[in-house]
Design a protein around this nucleic acid. Structure first.
Lengths: 347, 347
DNA sequence: ATTAGCACTTGAAGTGTAAGAGTGCTAACA
DNA sequence: TGTTAGCACTCTTACACTTCAAGTGCTAAT
């Protein structure tokens, strides 16, 4: 669909009036801006309505962009206003000062982006489906508890404390190491399965049965290393936009469901290969999100490790500013994580 | 302050009418319940107003309990309705099924309590100011990154990934171990100080300077092990009570500030030695919380490790049900954590 | 000490009116 | 033929006004 230049102009004006003010925009206001009479604008707007790019709240109110209208605007008409060098430097230094571990970097990035954009942010931990388990370490803590540490080829580390019912003897340790070497080491985390775990446990000799909890825990760690976990921050920012929502309670409740969130931030097929994904209003799969837009961007480091950073806000947000914001911040996070993990991971 | 039996009766009735309905209660309704005429009730209520236990929203409306009114009710008049055995068993099994690591137990407890009570919940990680560092482990991951694990006498484990700029040779490891043994091992986490860290780093020989990041990271881990971190869950539940708040946005924004939250859940002096702490409306230190009540309870395990679990809701909540709820859940969490850590920590 | 009665206050809910913004349509115009 | 002026119509919003119900405080009677 390609609109006439004048229709494009009108659409752009409607979007750019509506976004900052939230007021439906009428033909009169545009008539002054565009040099056509209000009647002409009305005719054009009427057609834009038929095309599904604009809509009216009630019979005699101004026009408001639909999801499709925003989409056309973003894809064809929008001029992005990238961040200035000063801002970039400031953001980067704020992130650098916030801590060096991946957890802290991501947490700070979420908080920073929330403040910067006035939206809720969503951040996922890095994951790598292709990663292999490259190291497993068992550290006795007390006589019956041990710390289990797992490291993947992409540098992702998971650990947990595990309790078993007998003393952790050298014998136990050796047996554990043997099993780890045989089944877990070099295995792809994505290929760990319940079946495999049960098979391993099933094959345990009597006296080794006590290490079962260790193996279960290790399996869990492997799974976690392959999955990314999503965190939301700055939800309360959405309350500031509550007039943009019919019932904001629904949205807030939705954002607290971790599983749903993970699906929300998983890139869909159409955007699988692009770095950013923008879903506007009704383009979202979830009905709870039909009044919201989601701007996601991928960060990546190492060979295959990647995660997502993004924002969730009302459909009426300043796309031209926020899209570059999200993009830049994701960029910095990727750089910081790469610095942390270095480029020397083992394969 | 000791009220007459009739005043107590009236106060109790007002509270118990107001909590479920949210409607100010008038003299007429109570007159039927209590067998006195509405005029008598009015006189008594008028005095309860002067005592600061009740208040009116406007000149001619029914009465509503003040914070002091709730306080008197809770301390003197309330009958708690403890959970049934069935419910208890169900809650415990839900928690047991949710995962065995302390992180998962706490996370699940927060979510469960939120659903159970319809309030926001706050959960702190266990901490122990008296704890000593009992073990430090350095696990090389790649050539220039290492995993640092710290274990305290109360069984708390912290870890992080640390990057240093040179290869981690045996020499480096030895030197690190030496410093750890001398300065960190057996040290109380509460006594770790910036000064101490700087002193240690200052004393490094030239060739050992590269381990500085390891020491900084270790210091950080120690600090974290001594401090408890607060997490909120189920904030969106508060939106269901939004008519109980003037401006709920303020409260939601407040709950997102981690530092404030930590202060909120730290027991004040008056409740330092009790297991539970209940702060009603204006009893809260923060003005953002003046329309909220906080019910906190401590969980504990091992020698000195403890943390807090609690709920945040409007002042108008069902104390008689929620207080036992919080208490019971804290109890279960304490038990589960004790099971996990066992009773065999080293001192 | 308690109660009945009454004047008074207040908020909630509903009604009617007027203003304002914006539309769709028709007819005139360049 | 595309554009515009004009006009009738629709819908929202704000405001003033009324009415109603709930509840109070006070006084005088019991």
């Amino acid at each position: 669909m390609k609109l006439s230049a004048r229709k494009e102009n009108i659409l752009a004006q409607v979007v750019e009036h509506y976004i900052p003010t939230g007021e439906p925009v009428g033909s009169k206001a545009l008539s002054e801006k565009l040099g056509y009479s209000s009647a002409t604008i009305r005719n054009e707007m009427s057609e834009l309505c038929e095309l599904g790019l604009l809509e009216k709240n009630h019979a005699s109110s101004g026009r408001v962009p639909t999801s499709a209208g925003y989409r056309y605007y973003i894809d064809n008409l929008m001029n992005t206003s990238p961040l200035g060098d000063m801002e970039c430097a400031k953001l980067e230094s704020m992130l650098r000062e916030g801590g060096k571990t991946p957890e802290k970097i991501l947490e700070n990035a979420g908080g920073l982006l929330a403040r910067l954009t006035g939206c809720a942010t969503v951040v996922t931990t890095p994951s790598d489906k292709q990663a292999k388990i490259s190291k497993v370490e068992l550290i006795p803590a007390s006589s019956k508890t041990a710390i289990l540490v797992l490291l993947t080829s992409s540098g992702i580390i998971k650990n947990c404390v595990c309790r078993i019912d007998i003393d952790i003897s050298d014998n136990i340790k050796d047996r554990f190491k043997e099993i780890v070497d045989k089944y877990f080491l070099k295995a792809k985390v994505a290929e760990l399965s319940e079946d495999m775990l049960e098979e391993i446990i099933g094959a345990l000799e009597n006296e080794d049965y006590a290490i079962k909890p260790l193996l279960s825990a290790l399996y869990e760690l492997g799974r976690e290393a392959g999955e990314s976990k999503a965190y939301v921050e700055g939800e309360s920012n959405l309350l500031a936009h509550k007039d943009a929502y019919g019932d904001i309670t629904e949205l807030m409740a939705f954002l607290q469901q971790r599983e749903q969130l993970s699906r929300l931030v998983s890139f869909d097929e159409s955007t699988l290969n692009s770095r950013m994904s923008i879903l506007i209003g009704s383009e979202n799969y979830f009905t709870e999100m039909e009044d919201s837009s989601v701007i996601l961007s991928r960060y990546a480091f190492g060979h295959n490790a990647m995660g997502t950073i993004g924002i969730i806000g009302p459909t009426r947000i300043d796309y031209s500013k926020l899209i570059p914001d999200v993009e830049y911040l994701t960029d910095v996070v990727g750089r910081l994580l790469a610095e942390h993990y270095g480029d020397d991971e083992e394969e």
